[in-house]
């Protein structure tokens, strides 16, 4: 059971109050993009063992989308942050480094 703190309403929401939204920080490639970019946007995902970044929605709550960082192996939650950003906040990255030295995820580390 995951518990995320919603960065908008501050509720410590249990998983059943949330809806998963897949991987975080995907860049959309639409019509006119080249095939490799479009394929990666649609199909290529990280699927890591360890540190992972995801989108979640507080659907049975304030209704807002947010980001979450967690460990796929232990289900440890490192933190949550707002949706209006292209990358995890620095303090969260530092917190993850303290717990999982040497971690990396796409271009983040």
């Amino acid at each position: 059971m995951l518990i995320f703190e919603c960065p908008y309403c501050g509720v410590h929401a249990e998983e059943s109050e949330l809806s998963p939204g897949g991987e975080a920080h995907l860049k959309r490639f639409g019509p006119g993009s080249d095939d490799a970019d479009f394929e990666s946007y649609l199909f290529i995902r990280e699927n890591p063992k360890g540190v992972h970044f995801e989108r979640w929605r507080h659907s049975n709550g304030c209704g807002k989308w947010f980001h979450a960082a967690r460990c796929t192996m232990t289900l440890e939650v490192f933190g949550t942050y707002v949706a209006q950003t292209f990358e995890p906040p620095q303090d969260l990255k530092e917190k993850i480094t303290a717990k999982r030295p040497g971690w990396s995820w796409r271009d983040f580390s």
Binding site: Y8, C9, G10, C62, G63, K64
Partner: peptide, 20 residues
């Protein structure tokens, strides 16, 4: 304030989300 309820003259306002 966040998740709180405020009372007015003949109405009450409840916080639903940062913009609602």
């Amino acid at each position: 304030q966040k998740r709180q309820i405020a009372h007015g003259n003949n109405s009450t306002a409840a916080w639903m989300s940062p913009d609602e």
